[in-house]
Amino acid sequence: MNLGTKQIGIVLIPSIIACSVSSVLSGLYMKWTGKYLLFAIVFSVIGCFGILLLIVRTYPFDLLVIPARFELYYLVVIPYFSYAVILTVTLLSLIASVPIESQSAVTSIQYAFRGMGSTAGASVSSFVFNYNLKNLLVSKLTEHRPDDFSDEKLEKLIYTAVHNADFIHSPEAPSWSVHYLVESYGISCWSTFVFSFAMSVLCLFTVFLIKEYKLHSTIKRK
């Protein structure tokens, strides 16, 4: 869609707000009800459907589905909302499951695993994106290049496109290649959404393994 960095940042503002608000609201809900298991299951399901909607509305093959500009403001809001809820629920469920003297330790453990999981997930997603991008660029550009486009030019085109997404809409990009460059980037991004959906489904299964303990509103417990 040829959006600049500033425009992409503006598009993500609703998602950032939703992430913050959902964490606060989920904390208030759990304080009010003292429960969290069904709440976590419901929002895990909502998160899965949110990513599924993102996958459907960004189907990239042949560029047949291109979301409208206004859709960019809400397509990732639901996954962000669900993500923040699950983070809050898992932290409080861990704290509720141990004695008071162990709560600081279990909080540290939760942040440790959260950090490792986020790093591993981002690393795998990055690998999926880059692996698909390189293979797609090689196959699509090789297949559709004009007869007078040399191997040296093709190699330079692929290298530049892999390392600089802004090149796609620049005057230096050959006109015949733009469609295939956009499609390759689209499929590569889409593949990371599919990976995220698979992880969200696994997350949903693990939520069912959580044991619910009563959340107490004071230090003194009965």
Rank of each mutant, 00 (worst) to 15 (best):
P99F: 04
E212I: 10
M30L: 04
K220E: 14
A105L: 07
A173G: 11
Y59R: 05
K220V: 15
D147V: 00
I95R: 04
M116C: 14
P60R: 12
L64K: 12
I51W: 00
Q7Y: 02
L209T: 15
V138H: 09
C19Y: 15
I17F: 13
L25G: 00
C203G: 07
V201G: 03
F113H: 12
K214V: 12
L63H: 07
L157D: 07
L215G: 09
R221E: 14
S104I: 08
Y185K: 07
R221Q: 14
T160W: 03
N132F: 13
L157P: 07
V207M: 06
Q110V: 10
V106L: 10
K211D: 08
Y73H: 07
T218A: 12
S170N: 08
V77R: 06
V45Y: 12
K140M: 08
L92A: 13
I95A: 01
T33R: 13
P60G: 15
K211Q: 13
T5Y: 05
L92W: 02
A122I: 13
S139T: 07
D62G: 00
E101I: 07
R69H: 09
E183Y: 06
A18G: 01
S217G: 13
L53M: 12
P171V: 13
T88G: 04
E155I: 08
L204C: 08
T58C: 07
F61T: 06
M30Q: 05
L37C: 10
